[in-house]
Write a protein that binds this DNA or RNA. Structure first.
Length: 469
RNA sequence: GGCGGCGUAGCCAAGGGGACCAAGGCAGCGGUCUGCAAAACCGCAAUUCGUGAGUUCGAAUCUCACCGUCGCCUCCA
């Protein structure tokens, strides 16, 4: 079976063939560290995490690079606000603090969502030299031009400009909404290097003190860590234009080589069918979301829709994802009770479930269809448990864990958690009451425990409990 | 104005010319189990895939038109 991926560059699904056999270079556009992460970030990074995990499942060694933008207008704006309150610190110091704070928060939230750590996380400010070198090269090759301390990229010089977003230059000019900077040769020319104001973070360059433009960092860092041509470049659909279009122009203009083989873009999170965004005021931060929902539920919610499609968020949908997650967990918990826990070795291949799972994932990482296979496998395991066919269970259960692991669904085993002393006493008391057929007492205890978040299930061997969550 | 996506049961969602009188989940209904539950199991539930026309032996799947909806064209995952 061959893996097919949808390439934004060609607008088709293509067979995935990396440059080096057995290895994949993958660059994911990271966050600008100026504010808390929201649901949209979570969706993107969960999507690319699953892609990375599946590539690893297929046997590839994945070199996953993800940047942090730690110098930018918005970070500076944030730092300026902070300075209004505590004026003793200088702006550069505050910019660093802002970036550091939100970088750490990013990790905190992504860990909750079980997003694997990238191989490396390069920061823009640590690669100023590389960016200056790229900019110099672009000027030398006639793509860049300097105007009093600013350097712009002249898009008219790059013949393929617009190939990713599939736009023609003439069309774009017609729709330009940006105010014209008189010093630019075309309104669509973009900054490679920006002259900076006195108090802003700045670095020495051949064009004076300044800081890099936004797009250049991704060209510089991706090529530094993955080479001038590499396999996968990923990000949100909103980055297609102008960010990724500009990256192609810079990188290919500089190297004369194809920059990226496969461009992958995830769809947006919407709230009530509208794009979630700060300007609309309808966004949810991950901090808010995790106060209400288990992060595993959030992850399953994302996986229930193909990563390129928009996904609409609502409490109701999260509640449904939660019910689905419980179905999988109840199944695995039951397997453990039967002491059938086995290492999730991939020894049992070729089942119809694995075929379906792989076919789904091979088809541009169709996690929604893959979940179909997972739920069918859950039904199969439950059914075998019911019939007492434990040899089938011991074959199917490791497979189920294996699939969940590929999707990054870390499931609770349910057994390692201890119950508080007084609650254990109550359960024992209830057992006695049940033996005496004192149903009123037994039910009262069950209700009380339910209020404590403990769900009791009576079984032939006695009652078992699990946390509600 | 230009470009692109989407519209499948009550809700979510996969499928994208014949194996589909359409996966899977949630909710619902009937049954089994249970003191009653919970969990689980068994079964039921779209004769139909936004609307209309067309291509085809055959269409949810292709073409055209229309309606609805969302996004990009400015920072954005």
């Amino acid at each position: 079976m061959s893996l097919k991926v949808y390439n934004t560059l060609t607008r088709t699904k293509e067979e995935f063939l990396p440059l080096e056999e057995g290895e994949v270079g993958m660059y994911v556009c990271g966050v600008t560290a100026y504010d808390e992460c929201h649901l949209g970030h979570a969706r993107a990074y969960v999507a690319f995490d699953v892609i990375r995990r599946y590539l690893e499942y297929k046997g590839y060694q994945v070199n996953h690079i993800q940047n942090f933008t730690d110098v930018d207008d918005k970070i500076i704006a944030r730092a300026r606000k902070m300075r209004e309150k505590s004026s003793e610190k200088d702006l550069k110091e505050l910019c660093k603090e802002v970036a550091e704070k939100y970088t750490m928060e990013y990790f905190e939230h992504m860990d909750k969502l079980t997003v694997k750590r990238a191989t490396q996380y390069p920061r823009a400010t640590e690669h100023i030299g590389e960016m200056i070198k790229l900019t110099e090269g672009l000027i030398r090759k006639g793509y860049g031009y300097q105007v009093d301390g600013d350097v712009f990229f002249e898009i008219g010089k790059f013949k393929d400009y617009g190939k990713l977003s599939q736009r023609k230059l003439e069309e774009m000019r017609a729709g330009v909404r940006v105010e014209m900077d008189e010093r630019k040769r075309s309104p669509l020319d973009f900054a490679l290097w920006k002259r900076s104001k006195e108090d802003e973070p700045s670095w020495d360059s051949p064009w004076g003190r300044g800081r890099p433009g936004w797009h250049i960092e991704c060209s510089a860092m991706s090529m530094k860590y993955l080479g001038e041509s590499f396999d996968i470049h990923a990000g949100g659909q909103d980055l297609i234009f102008p960010h990724h279009e500009n990256e192609i122009a810079q990188s290919e203009g500089y190297t004369g080589k194809p920059f990226v083989r496969y461009w992958l873009h995830n769809g947006f999170v919407t709230i009530n069918r509208e794009k979630m965004s700060k300007s609309l005021g309808n966004f949810f931060t991950l901090r808010e979301i995790f106060e209400k929902y288990d992060s595993r539920v959030v992850r399953l919610f994302f996986l229930s829709t193909h990563y390129r499609k928009p996904i609409d968020f609502s409490d109701d949908k999260l509640a449904k994802a939660k019910a689905g997650l419980e179905r999988i967990e109840n199944c695995l918990r039951e397997v453990e009770r039967k002491e059938l826990r086995e290492p999730a070795a991939r020894t049992y291949r070729g089942s119809i479930y694995r075929t379906r799972f792989e076919e789904a994932m091979d088809d541009d990482f169709n996690t929604a269809a893959a979940l179909g296979a997972i739920f069918d496998l859950v039904s199969r395991v439950n059914s075998c448990l019911e019939k007492g066919d434990l040899s089938s269970v011991s074959k199917a259960a490791p497979e189920l864990r294996d699939f969940c692991q590929v999707l990054g669904l870390s499931l609770e085993s349910g057994q390692e958690v201890r119950l508080e002393e007084d609650l254990v006493k109550l359960i024992k008391e209830r057992e006695k009451a049940r033996q005496k057929k004192d149903w009123a007492r037994a039910d009262a205890i069950r209700t009380k425990l339910r209020e404590e978040g403990i769900i009791l299930e009576d079984r032939p061997q006695g009652a078992t409990w699990r946390r509600a969550e």
